[in-house]
């Protein structure tokens, strides 16, 4: 039997999925994911996911925006095209604050949005788990699905299937590897 892309197990409730995720994490599996119709509180911790670095990315964008605003206004007002405006100095930082404020926010917002895209590997038009015939579809309705991927170093078809049965999975499904050129 060919190695599947992943094995799916469905559970009856969010609580059961959380428990399953905790046990999967503790069993040392790294390449696994959970699919549910709605976000489940505490899932990040149950799966052992680290805190997203998005905050740091947004902070980087914020300081980038701030530096851009400061340099741009200094260069325009004090270097490239100095104009006397209401008798104030060329480098009047007071007047630069609103633009610095706006660009800081713009930088942070853009970094947050596109950083989120990058961290989620978006845009992504297809995913191998879509090959699933039955269980994955239930995860947009009433199913709570755990997927352990065959790329995991600890993966073995029989081992994972037995592990999922021990977890108390209601149903188990093998998702086949995609064939080359199947999706055009």
């Amino acid at each position: 039997m060919a190695k599947p892309y992943c094995i799916l197990a469905s559970f009856d409730s969010p609580a059961a999925l959380i428990q399953a995720a905790e046990k999967t994490r503790d069993a040392g599996y790294k390449h696994f994911d959970c699919y549910s119709p709605f976000p489940i509180h505490g899932m990040d911790a149950a799966m052992g996911l680290k805190r997203s670095p998005l905050g740091l990315i947004a902070a980087g964008g914020a300081f980038g925006g701030l530096a851009t605003a400061a340099l741009m206004q200094w260069w325009m007002s004090a270097v490239d095209y100095p104009l006397v405006l209401s008798g104030k100095p060329f480098f009047s930082y007071q007047a630069f604050v609103p633009i610095a404020f706006e660009l800081t926010i713009l930088g942070a917002a853009l970094a947050a949005v596109f950083g989120m895209f990058a961290l989620n590997q978006m845009p992504q038009y297809h995913h191998p788990v879509f090959e699933s015939d039955k269980l994955l579809k239930t995860s947009s309705d009433n199913g709570f699905v755990l997927a352990i991927e065959s790329s995991d170093p600890a993966f073995s078809t029989d081992g994972v299937e037995q592990f999922m049965k021990d977890l108390g999975a209601a149903q188990i499904e093998h998702v086949a590897q995609e064939e080359e050129g199947e999706h055009v």
Binding site: S86, G87, Q94, A95, V97, P98
Partner: peptide, 12 residues
């Protein structure tokens, strides 16, 4: 605080 300050600074 800055809104108050900047308008007064600008208006002079």
């Amino acid at each position: 605080a800055f809104s108050q300050y900047m308008l007064i600074w600008y208006g002079n």
